[in-house]
């Protein structure tokens, strides 16, 4: 079991992660989700012992990685975001070298390397210089390095980046098959991937844990809510206001521009009945509805909802945006009052 307790990391004055606590159970695949810059890589770097933490502990099977690093590191295979390969080495040579520094016995190295190359399907390039390999192959060589010596824990930072769709499926299957004897932390911002292989997810945002639960529970947490997708022609602020004022609308998750003045709105509603109210209200206000569809909320909505919450301190940019919106709104009011006169 990996236990992460109150982990905090400051870079200078900036907190990259704040008070993160969760644990990874044996033989599970834990998804580690978060938008870019949320602190995923930082957390993984600390868990693997690459970076020291400012506060808090990481216990690998009860061994503190800061206290007994060499013992703890033996149990971990790590694939960082950028595969740590030496471009001037050949694939097999590189893997043998990795087996060496991981302290695998000399007699077992060859077998281990062959096994890893078979699993990651890099056997056909074993005698090529890594410099000449494509990004996908490099990624797989990096992955092969992580599973050398059958470490109990595998920590994979975005393992499918740069792979083509077929390879992505292969790697996902591999990860699933590794679950039998390994415990895996898988970080990604590709939700489909997490959904495909993980049972439990940790969602972090702005360096804080937002949710730790199984995917099913997270989806259910939105209750019987529905997501309504509507393509509407009309001024965005007016439409938003009109929709917001209707009873039963929980939230407008997203509004993406389709065309000049045409937006697709993603609206979270309590139940199916609210749809009718929205449409009536929109028609009454002379907005043109081009398309309507509904869907059940999935991990994506949970993710958006959880990560869209602002951090404790708002950034300057957010404050400016808010100010702009307000200014725009008051301008419109003034225009309206002039016309009345």
């Amino acid at each position: 079991m990996i236990e992460i307790k109150n982990l905090t990391k400051y870079y200078g004055k900036n907190a990259a992660v704040r008070n993160i606590t969760f644990s990874v159970l044996d033989n599970e695949i834990l998804g580690f989700l978060g938008p870019n810059g949320a602190g995923k890589s930082t957390t993984m770097n600390i868990v693997t012992g690459y970076l020291p933490s400012t506060a808090g502990n990481v216990l690998i099977d009860g061994i503190d990685i800061a206290q007994e690093p060499s013992k703890a590191k033996r149990m971990i295979g790590y694939l960082p975001e950028i595969p740590p390969v030496y471009v001037d080495m050949k694939v097999k040579e590189y893997l043998l070298f990795c087996a060496g520094i991981k302290g695998i016995k000399r007699s077992e190295r060859k077998a281990q390397v062959e096994n890893a190359m078979d699993k990651l399907k890099v056997k056909d390039v074993e005698n090529r210089l890594i410099r000449n390999l494509s990004k996908g192959y490099r990624q797989r060589v990096g992955f092969a390095q992580a599973i050398l010596g059958d470490p109990k824990y595998l920590i994979l930072d975005e393992p499918t980046v740069g792979l083509d769709p077929n390879q992505v499926i292969e790697v996902r299957n591999l990860i699933r098959s590794l679950k039998k004897d390994h415990t895996i932390i898988l970080s990604s911002h590709i939700l489909a991937e997490i959904q495909a292989v993980c049972e439990r997810v940790v969602i972090i945002s702005h360096g804080e844990v937002r949710a730790i639960d199984t995917i099913k529970n997270l989806e259910d947490s939105l209750g019987g809510a529905l997501i309504l997708l509507m393509k509407i022609t009309g001024k965005k602020s007016d439409v938003t206001e009109c929709i917001r004022n209707i009873d039963g609308v929980v939230n407008i998750i997203d509004a993406s521009m389709e065309d000049e003045g045409v937006y697709t709105y993603k609206i979270e509603i309590k139940d199916d009945g609210v749809r009718k109210d929205i449409m009536t209200a929109l028609v009454k206000n002379d907005f043109e509805i081009d398309e309507v569809s509904t869907e059940k909320p999935n991990l994506e909505e949970v993710f958006v909802k959880l990560t869209a919450q602002p951090p404790r301190k708002k950034g300057l940019k957010d404050l400016l945006d808010e100010y702009d919106d307000e200014a725009e709104a008051s301008d419109e009011q003034n225009d309206g009052s002039k016309e009345d006169k």
Binding site: N45, T48, G49, Y50, P69, S70, K71, K73, R74, I76, Y78, P80, I82, P83, P84, V85, Y86, V87, C98, I101, K102, G103, Q145
Partner: peptide, 14 residues
């Protein structure tokens, strides 16, 4: 520069 420092630092070597 090449990111291989991670490999050495996360290996059991001190």
């Amino acid at each position: 520069k090449s990111g291989t420092e991670v490999l050495l630092m996360t290996s059991p070597l001190n």
